[in-house]
Every structure is written in C-alpha cells, then in structure tokens.
Amino acid sequence: MTSAQRPPSTEELIAILMSRDIRDWETCACGALSMMPAASMLLAEATHAPHIEVIILGSDELSGNLGKDIHFLSQRGKLDLFYHSAVQFDAEGNFNLHVLGDPDAPDRRLPGGYGSGLISYTAKRIFFYRTEHSLRTFVPKVDFISGASVTPAGVKRAPEPFRLYTPMAILSFDREAGRYIVESVHEGFTADDVRENTGFELDIADPCPVTPPVSDEELGMLRGEVRDRMIETGTYSQWAETALAP
C-alpha cells in the first residue's frame, strides 16, 4: 500500500483474496449471510472475470429465487464455486457449523448443515473463509462433524482441494495426504504466527510464499463500484455501506 487509502479491514482483505481466485466463466453461488463472498464475486466480475454467473441467495436482486435450482445444479456436479464458513476446522479436514460443546447439550447452536453436508460435497470448488485465525477455530477435533473432507473411495468428490481464507493465510486441504497446506502467509505475519494459532500440524514451505498484498486498484474498486452495486441491488446494503465505506 503506497497511497493514503485506509488499509483493508479483515473483511475487505478476505473478499479481495477470494475474488482473485475466481475463474472467468464460473457459475458461482453463496448462501445466506455471505457478505464477503458476495463482495468477492462482484469484485471479480468487475475486474478479471466479467463472464461469471453470480448467484447471491441473500440478495434482493441477485438471488433469482434459485435456492432449489442451486441445490440440483450442485447435485448434478455443475456448480463451479460455492462459499462456506464454519466455526471450527480440524486436523482431518472436518468442519463444524452445527454446535459448540457437547452436541446433546450444546453451549451454542449454529445454523447447521445444509451447505456443509451437501453443497460442500458436490460443488466443484469450495472457498472456506473465517474472519479469525485462532486456536478456538483451528482445533485438533471439531465438536461436531457437519462436513468431512476425507470420505470413502466410492463417494464421488470434486478433485480440487478446498481453499480456506483467514486474516493470516491462505490454506488448502490435501485430501490424498489428509493434511492442510499453507499456500501463502499475508504480509505482517510469519509462518510461526500461523503455526502458533493453529491447533494442529500444517505443511508450510520454507520459505513460505507471501500473499501478494492488496493493491490500491482492488481496494478502490471494492469501496467504489462493488459497494455501489451491492447497495443498488439490495445485496447486504447495510453491510456494504459501512464495511466497504470509502
């Protein structure tokens, strides 16, 4: 960052990093309460991926009332990209969006399993995101398996490893090896920071690649065109107004 722009917030950073990895012509969708995914799709569409299909189920104008269609599209193996968050991720690539604590007497109940249990198995690519990189998020064993990465050989899965975006790093899960790999660490953090805040072992190259920093253009576009589009189309307008304020 060389200009006077305010540095990116965690939410802006994650939206921008996810947007870079969208491929042109992909059919991309996100579910409810998916502000960062929505912003990332619209940013990609406004920059390097003008031909993507954008489906934002939580949006007034960009949802197309496609809930069921998205499910069937994904079951047919034709949904290119879906977004997902979870409260816990574990060493074996399981993730939890159901409960914290004992499942029979939970401390917290969460929205649960539709996307985790179905779409994360059938979409061609999954981008996971989490706004904190901490020991309570990256645990040795999740409290409840909402979705599993490693499944028996007969279960058909898309071949690409899922990617996981955090404020510290980009990870991917290697299903064959059953391990997380650190793809890159963001500026301002080290491989040790990532290790210390992850409750299981990671594969980290030495030296670890550095995530290319957010550019003025990306940030300007996000706070300008993308924010306007979100407000105009009833796509988390309140969030866009404040979180992406110029």
Binding site: Q75, N94, H98, P103, G113, S116, G117, L118, I119, S120, Y121, T122, F144, I145, S146, G147, A148, V150, T151, P152, V155, K156
Partner: peptide, 13 residues
C-alpha cells in the same frame, strides 16, 4: 439417493 453427508455426525445420529 443423495450426494453428500458421508462421514458427518449427521449420519451418526
């Protein structure tokens, strides 16, 4: 038949 859910605690319960 449904694709998904393999290996989850949903199946266990």
């Amino acid at each position: 038949p449904v694709r998904g859910l393999a290996g989850t605690d949903v199946m266990e319960r």
